[in-house]
């Protein structure tokens, strides 16, 4: 087919209007969040003392941090799906979860507590944390990558990594309500590790499936 004909054909298809990537990502989450939530309710469920835990600021801080992380990752991943769109300014959003975590860790170390800092860091749930966050992320990551294929990621591995970060952030919101370890030291260690694993998987899969 010669190029002139192809151009005429493409022009004939101009009436087709594609949905924005943001819309597709939102739609993907509408399907995937209930799936992850169902897995969460069947396998883990919220902790029994959740109503008392609510009064512990460190319990609440976990949610604020991971929600801030998921929002920052969403903003960046949507920029990355647009070729030649500058991302720089948006990556500053990651300062928010990082700063909150830093303040939490500092507070945790400064206030006198019964248990030692190392036992708070090691906690009692680290292995569950390391397996639950990736498990709960799986449906979210799958859906996010499917939605992002609708975009045009010129850096597919990077886009995949931020999709992983977004999925793990949302999965951590679910997991945080199960986890008894509220110490920011625990969050900084094990949540970060689990989220890091999902981010790496996102980068690996993204580098294949997000290429266009």
């Amino acid at each position: 087919m010669d190029t002139d004909r192809l151009i005429r054909t493409l022009a004939a298809d101009n009436d087709y209007r594609a949905r924005s990537v943001g819309w597709m990502l939102a739609l993907a989450m509408v399907f995937a969040v209930p799936v992850s939530s169902a897995i969460f309710m069947m396998r883990l469920g919220p902790r029994a003392d959740i109503s008392q835990a609510m009064s512990n600021p460190f319990f609440e801080l976990k949610f604020v941090i991971v929600i801030a992380l998921a929002i920052a990752a969403t903003a960046v991943v949507l920029r990355l799906s647009r070729p030649a769109a500058p991302v720089g300014r948006w990556s500053w959003l990651f300062v928010i979860p990082a700063a909150l975590l830093g303040i939490g860790v500092a507070t945790d170390l400064l206030i006198p507590q019964q248990s030692s800092w190392s036992s708070r860091m090691i906690g009692s749930n680290s292995m569950i944390c390391l397996s639950a966050i990736p498990l709960l992320s799986a449906p979210l990551l799958f859906a996010a990558l499917a939605a992002l294929r609708h975009g045009a990621a010129t850096r597919p591995a990077l886009s995949g990594a931020f999709a992983g970060l977004l999925s793990a952030g949302l999965a951590a919101v679910l997991y945080a309500s199960h986890c008894f370890d509220d110490s920011p030291l625990f969050v900084a260690t094990w949540y970060s590790l689990a989220i890091g694993v999902v981010t790496a998987i996102g980068a690996l899969v993204g580098s294949r499936v997000l290429r266009f």
């Binding site: 949905r19 990537v21 647009r82 070729p83 045009a152 266009f212």
Partner: peptide, 12 residues
């Protein structure tokens, strides 16, 4: 050209 066409919604 085909990619430009199919991805044009990603242009701001």
């Amino acid at each position: 050209l085909i990619a430009v066409h199919l991805k044009r919604h990603t242009w701001d």
